[in-house]
């Protein structure tokens, strides 16, 4: 099976977020970038599904040359080859148009993304790629099994799950449960350097949305401490003061 995994280059989860230029730009100074954690799960499942020479895994990223270390990381984990679409990712729709073009040309049977990126958290790109390609999409799945012509997935819903069958080709965005992340071994790291990373130019896309500014959450007032032997007072305060219970 030919699988395409869409990956995103995001700030490390421990990053303290600050902004530049009058709160219009994310301040990347000193920020460590990583492979988006949900995309790592998508990649891990794709590698499992193609184990034993049963197909190939291509990773695709929309980014400038500074994302190459993250792409190499994906190759070290076990992707066979990579495509980087050489453009700054303007928004989800822009990214989806770029990837849909690559995905159509490559005739992949399965396209996987993470449920969302941990920077802009849009959860948009996957379903947009599928709509542009006119193929089915299932968002936020925690299980994916494959039979001959059909796949079975479990989609998260409020308070439960849906079991869905779908024929190839299709796109799914994944969340925790679909696979455990894989740690690259030394052989993987060595071979990642020589695996093919193709750089292609982007296509023009209408910019339908843009971030005009950012805000940081307002600081909370200082904590009111209640002593252990008066714990019951907490419930009273939540009821009559905060009025939340």
């Amino acid at each position: 099976m030919k699988i395409l995994v869409c990956i995103s280059n995001v700030p490390d989860t421990t990053t303290k977020i600050t902004f530049n230029s009058n709160n219009t730009e994310f301040n990347t100074t000193g920020v460590q970038f990583i492979l988006n954690p949900y995309d790592e799960l998508a990649l891990a499942r794709a590698i499992e599904l193609t184990e034993g020479g049963n197909g190939s895994v291509t990773v695709v990223n929309v980014g400038l040359a500074d994302t190459d270390p993250t792409i190499r990381k994906a190759l070290a984990i076990g992707a066979d080859d990579a495509i980087r679409i050489n453009a700054a990712p303007a928004n989800a729709y822009f990214v989806a148009q770029q990837i849909a073009k690559i995905a159509k040309e490559g005739q992949y049977e399965l396209i996987l993304t993470g449920r969302e990126s941990i920077d802009y958290n849009g959860a948009q790109t996957g379903a947009m790629i599928a709509e542009i390609m006119d193929i089915p999409s299932i968002s936020i799945i925690k299980k994916l099994t494959v039979a001959a012509n059909t796949a079975t997935v479990e989609r998260e819903i409020e308070g439960g799950k849906e079991v869905i069958t779908v024929n190839f080709p299709f796109l799914a965005s994944v969340t925790e449960g679909v696979a455990e992340p894989k740690i690259p071994n030394m052989r993987g790291i060595m071979s990642a350097r020589t695996k093919p990373l193709q750089v292609v130019e982007s296509i023009a896309v209408d910019i339908l949305s843009s971030i005009s500014s950012f805000d940081l959450p307002a600081a909370r007032s200082t904590v009111k401490l209640i002593s252990t032997n008066e714990s019951a007072k907490l419930i009273e305060a939540l009821h009559s003061e905060a009025k939340v219970i």
């Binding site: 303290k16 958290n121 209408d206 910019i207 949305s209 805000d215 940081l216 959450p217």
Partner: peptide, 20 residues
């Protein structure tokens, strides 16, 4: 036309302008 949403997984907010 702009709308406020969360960003950076709850660490910040983004004001998104829709041009369409």
């Amino acid at each position: 036309f702009s709308v406020k949403r969360g960003a950076f997984s709850g660490k910040a907010f983004a004001n998104v302008t829709l041009n369409s």
